[in-house]
């Protein structure tokens, strides 16, 4: 029993990895040409941007918060980079760091509002989303195509791998981000404080941890990830457009949740999030290979998974709570 309980935490993660393998195996059996390294790598290539945002989102979710602005901030980054590159003719070497700073700043302001004025994260980031989308349109209503040579070059560059396969620069950036996130989450005081806040903000305060600073930094980090996503996405799409990445925030949340990060905070796995993204990708690929099913099935399937995982997490939580009830009723008595 005890063993089972200790594994409950990882249950979501195991199920996700297992599910991913199953889905990939099913695809391989059913469709010719599915079982290849390149199909697997394409999952990464097509979802590199989602991996980066989802990692930022995972950090926010671990603290028990939420960031609905990510999709809009990505769109804003694309739009602003396109504008600066094409209309202002700024050097890409200046644009890229500038975009990262802008994303971080955007996150910082939201984090500051949330922490200092005890505003609900969900409302503040909603406002952030409106703001970022609106700013996109302030820059331009129409699509701006990026023709900058460096962006073009990066976009077309293929890093060759054995067995005639390749990946894009975006994948490299995503994987580096993943490694950095793993280090940050598991080997730094900042990362551990993030988990502690999600476990119990009250306890974290009593243990003398820098709660306020960490919470603001988490939103800043998410903003930074959105900025980075914006850059990777503009490599991928080579354009800026106000309607880019609508609903990306939901995909990112779904990736984190399916990867074993409950929305109640305190628990979260960066690797899980990677698989959360890959599952969405593999579903998409399956539907593509199948040919007759339409793309909206992806959405329904993802929502179904999301639902199952949320209910699963709720069940795990209530199991834990039933053990805590004893404590609480006794606590109430005194």
């Amino acid at each position: 029993m005890k063993k089972l309980q200790s594994n409950l935490k990882y249950l979501g993660l195991f199920i996700t990895i297992f599910l991913f393998s199953i889905l990939f195996a099913v695809g391989s059996v059913m469709y010719d040409g599915f079982f290849s390294l390149q199909v697997l790598l394409n999952l990464l290539i097509d979802n590199a941007f989602l991996i980066i945002t989802s990692i930022g989102m995972t950090f926010v979710l671990i603290t028990g918060g939420i960031d609905l602005s990510v999709g809009a901030v990505v769109a804003l980054t694309c739009m602003l980079s396109a504008h600066l590159l094409e209309k202002v003719h700024m050097s890409p070497f200046l644009v890229i760091p500038l975009m990262l700073i802008m994303g971080s700043l955007f996150g910082f302001v939201m984090g500051y509002l949330i922490q200092s004025f005890k505003m609900q994260p969900f409302i503040v980031t909603l406002a952030g989303m409106f703001m970022a989308r609106g700013l996109c349109y302030v820059i331009s209503i129409d699509t701006i195509t990026i023709s900058d040579p460096l962006y073009q070059a990066i976009s077309q560059f293929r890093i060759p791998l054995p067995f005639d396969s390749f990946i894009s620069i975006g994948v490299v950036i995503a994987l580096v981000t993943l490694l950095a996130a793993l280090y940050l989450a598991n080997y730094t005081k900042f990362g551990r404080t993030v988990y502690a806040i999600g476990g119990s903000e009250q306890s974290a305060l009593l243990m003398g941890l820098p709660v306020a600073r960490t919470k603001i930094l988490v939103y800043t980090l998410s903003g930074f990830c959105s900025g980075l996503t914006g850059i990777v996405f503009s490599f991928y799409m080579l354009s800026g457009y106000g309607l880019h990445c609508i609903g990306l925030e939901m995909d990112a949340i779904a990736a984190a949740v399916i990867g074993g990060t409950p929305l109640t905070g305190g628990i979260g796995f960066m690797t899980g999030t990677l698989f959360g993204v890959l599952i969405q990708g593999v579903i998409q690929t399956l539907i593509m290979f199948q040919g007759t099913l339409s793309s909206w099935w992806t959405r329904i399937a993802v929502a179904f998974l999301l639902c199952v995982f949320i209910i699963l997490q709720r069940v795990i939580l209530s199991k834990k709570e039933s053990r805590k009830v004893l404590t609480n009723t006794a606590a109430k008595a005194s």
């Binding site: 509002l113 200092s116 004025f117 005890k118 505003m119 609900q120 409302i123 503040v124 909603l126 406002a127 952030g128 989303m129 409106f130 703001m131 989308r133 609106g134 700013l135 996109c136 349109y137 302030v138 209503i141 106000g242």
Partner: peptide, 21 residues
């Protein structure tokens, strides 16, 4: 599309007014 920006500002202002802190 500018309404988005206006709305964002309005939300933040309302929430700030509602925030005790």
């Amino acid at each position: 599309e500018i309404t988005y920006v206006v709305k964002a500002v309005v939300v933040i202002v309302i929430c700030l007014i509602q925030s005790e802190e």
